[in-house]
Design a protein around this nucleic acid. Structure first.
Length: 375
RNA sequence: CCGGAGAUGGCGGAGUGGUCAAUCGCACCUGACUGUAAAUCAGGCGCCCUUAGGGCUUCGGAGGUUCAAAUCCUUCUCUCCGGACCA
């Protein structure tokens, strides 16, 4: 079994508590992982495939992986109209199978991926709610308020009191499930940092290794994938932090053109990518290039460009550095990139489309889409 | 509970009795220009009718005044800001 973190590091941006992770691997004890999902709508490539890539790598390390279907959190955050029945239905009939397919696509093993539904975890579970309170006793209100950005809300948005329950609940989830590895996109960082900070103060249900020592959860964060939309200003203004600026343009479910959803039809995929922002020779801020880097290459190991002779003929690249080089000097044109990434994605995602091709699945997907329009 | 402010189209935000289907900005859609997108320019952007034009339904909900209301009145709901209560 693989014992180093190199593969994992390639598909993530940071590991908080890396040394602890190495120790855990060496100790041969069971290591449980989880990533939590709000059942917030359709699954896009970032959520589906990038998550799956990390899970694949964790499985290679012998970690017991799981996905937490956070129906309570979804309810609190008022997604899917706050309709608890629908949330559960979508969780079990769309999210879970979809993530199995995504994991299969990237070469992971869906049979070794557990699913845990929030309602089941909390049902008749005093210890969980004690955990929530105990986490809360270690936090100030302002700290919790600041951390509500993990819910994808703006500070200016109206905040219901229940939203303040969300971060401590998310932290308590980790301890309740006994997950030594907590995994999420970088947007969830604040919550994980809280989890690590309070970990050593917990009395009721702390994380422990097999020697009984109290542990902080190891937190793995993957990068958020760029959205295809154009930035509000281009070229990027000189005087600002480019990284911060770019970070604002992530794939988003609420910005229609920014994301490809995993069950999108070939036509939809082509159309969205055709409309993508993709300046010629630009390698610093280029969402299409970013997709090749974060999705195509880690999944298939190569990126094939099929094009007419007059444009330079076919090329295959195997690293992002190689691709960037060719793109920067104009050997590869944005249209080459777009045409081929679209076809590559169509091919990759075919199993998902098949999985959800039946009438019942289509109904569920439709109901998610209509909800968004309505609310 | 009391006092004040407010609720307008996807969002922001004008409008305070007729000329308002509702200025404007953003977003969005179409076309032109580029081997893509962006930028720029032209047009569209409540719904229906084939255009001129016409019809229908809108300005938090309900009711009312008026020839005529997003605009006035009553009432309800919700939001924000103060204050009161704090055994």
């Amino acid at each position: 079994m693989q014992r180093n973190l190199e593969g994992l590091k390639k598909v993530s941006v940071e590991i908080l508590g890396e040394e602890d992770f190495v120790k855990l691997l060496e100790s041969n004890e069971e290591i449980k992982h989880y990533i939590g999902f709000e059942i917030s709508g359709l699954i896009h490539l970032g959520q589906g495939l990038v998550t799956a890539l990390v899970i694949r790598e964790l499985q290679k390390l012998g970690v017991k992986t799981s996905i937490y279907l956070a129906d309570w959190h979804t309810w609190i955050n008022d997604k899917l109209g706050g309709n608890r029945e629908l949330i559960k239905k979508v969780a079990l009939e769309y999210f879970a199978p979809a993530m199995q397919e995504c994991l299969k696509i990237v070469g992971g093993n869906p049979l070794e991926l557990d699913f845990i539904l929030g309602s089941d975890l909390y049902h008749n579970n005093d210890r969980y709610w004690q955990g929530v309170v105990e986490v809360g006793k270690n936090l100030t209100v302002s700290r919790v308020k600041k951390s509500t950005t993990i819910m994808g809300r703006e500070e200016s948005d109206e905040m219901k009191f229940a939203m303040l329950l969300y971060p401590p609940m998310q932290v308590a989830d980790i301890f309740e499930m006994g997950c030594k590895i907590a995994h999420a996109g970088t947007d969830q960082r604040k919550c994980h940092v809280i989890a690590r900070e309070v970990a050593t103060s917990l009395k009721i249900n702390p994380l422990k290794n097999k020697e009984g020592e109290i542990l902080k959860p190891v937190c793995i964060h993957h990068a958020l994938v760029s959205g295809l939309q154009a930035p509000s200003e281009w070229p990027l203004p000189e005087n600002i932090d480019k990284k911060d600026f770019i970070a604002k343009y992530k794939m988003s479910k609420s910005i229609p053109g920014s994301a490809v959803f995993i069950q999108d039809s070939p036509e939809e995929i082509r159309e969205k990518i055709k409309k993508a922002f993709c300046p010629e020779k630009e390698i610093e801020y280029n969402p299409v290039l970013n997709w090749v880097e974060q999705i195509i290459l880690p999944t298939t190991g190569k990126f094939e460009i099929i094009r007419e002779e007059r444009f330079g003929g076919n090329v295959t690249v195997e690293s992002i550095a190689q691709l960037k080089e060719k793109f920067k000097n104009g050997d590869i044109h944005p249209v080459d990139l777009k045409n081929n990434i679209a076809e590559a994605l169509i091919k990759l995602l075919e199993p998902v489309r098949k999985r959800f091709a039946d009438l019942q699945s289509q109904e569920i997907i439709k109901s998610i889409i209509n909800l968004r329009k309505g609310s």
